[in-house]
Amino acid sequence: MNTTSTRKITRFATAVAVAYAASTMPSYAHFLPNAGGLGAGLSHPLSGLDHILAMAGVGIWAGQNADNEPVFRWLPLGFVIGMIAGAVFGMTGFPLPFVELGIAGSVVVLGAIVALGSRVPFGAAFAMTVVFGGLHGFAHGQELPIASNALLYGLGFVVSTAVLHAIGFSLATFVARLSWRTALRVGGGGIAVAGVALASSLAA
């Protein structure tokens, strides 16, 4: 597939993702507590700012480095792998302390990495996203609605996560193409600050 075709597909996917997020978030926000299956899974990553920022942050980090290191295009996969494993663990009902604080911490770290333009080796970056995904996945699994279809619920939050990754990745590559990397770093700083605020609210 040539570069032009890839760009067209990326733009189309981003447009669909934005339209999807805009149309579903308001309606699902009140649907989650009593929902089951696919609908609840789709809505869950969109129901919390911490999830949105972390998942978009992974996509931004991947897009920020993809031109110099194409292997970074696979970075979101690490998050999804960790998220699925964490969700399965969370569904068992086993308690894991400080999960919410860890999720807020993942937002801070991801935002700081983007803001600083840190050159993290891909292996370490992939491992980090697996861990972060595991924390977010645990929260998804722990909040599985009663009488839900776990498989459909899992499919739903994987799809929503992929959408947020795609939005972040497309945003980062678009900004890089326009040589607005400073704006991207400012955005990363904003994500980190939001993460600190989330962590502070949990610690209060």
Rank of each mutant, 00 (worst) to 15 (best):
T3N: 07
T4R: 07
A19V: 15
Y20W: 15
S23C: 08
T24D: 09
M25F: 11
P26H: 09
S27F: 14
S27I: 14
Y28V: 11
N34G: 11
N34E: 15
G36H: 07
L38F: 14
L38E: 04
L38D: 06
A40E: 02
G41Y: 06
L42K: 06
L42P: 01
S47D: 13
G48L: 11
L49C: 05
D50C: 09
H51A: 02
I52G: 05
I60T: 04
I60W: 08
D67G: 02
D67I: 09
F72A: 00
R73F: 02
W74Y: 10
W74T: 02
W74M: 09
L75H: 00
L75G: 00
P76E: 10
L77A: 12
G78V: 04
F79N: 00
F79K: 01
F79T: 04
I81R: 03
I84D: 01
A85Q: 04
G86Y: 10
T92G: 03
P95A: 06
L96I: 15
V99G: 04
E100G: 02
E100R: 05
E100P: 03
L101F: 11
G102A: 14
I103Y: 07
I103T: 12
L110I: 15
G111P: 02
I113M: 03
V114T: 08
A115R: 05
L116D: 04
S118P: 00
P121W: 08
F122Y: 09
G123S: 05
G123K: 03
F126L: 13
V130E: 05
G133K: 03
L135M: 11
H136C: 05
A139I: 11
G141C: 07
G141D: 08
P145L: 03
S148P: 09
N149W: 04
A150K: 08
L151D: 02
V158N: 09
A162C: 09
V163K: 00
V163N: 02
A172Y: 08
V175K: 00
V175S: 07
W180D: 07
W180K: 14
R181N: 11
L184I: 10
V186K: 12
G187T: 13
G189L: 13
G189T: 13
A192P: 02
A192I: 07
A192H: 01
A192L: 10
V193Q: 02
A194V: 04
G195K: 11
A197N: 07
A199G: 09
S201R: 10
L202E: 06
A203S: 06
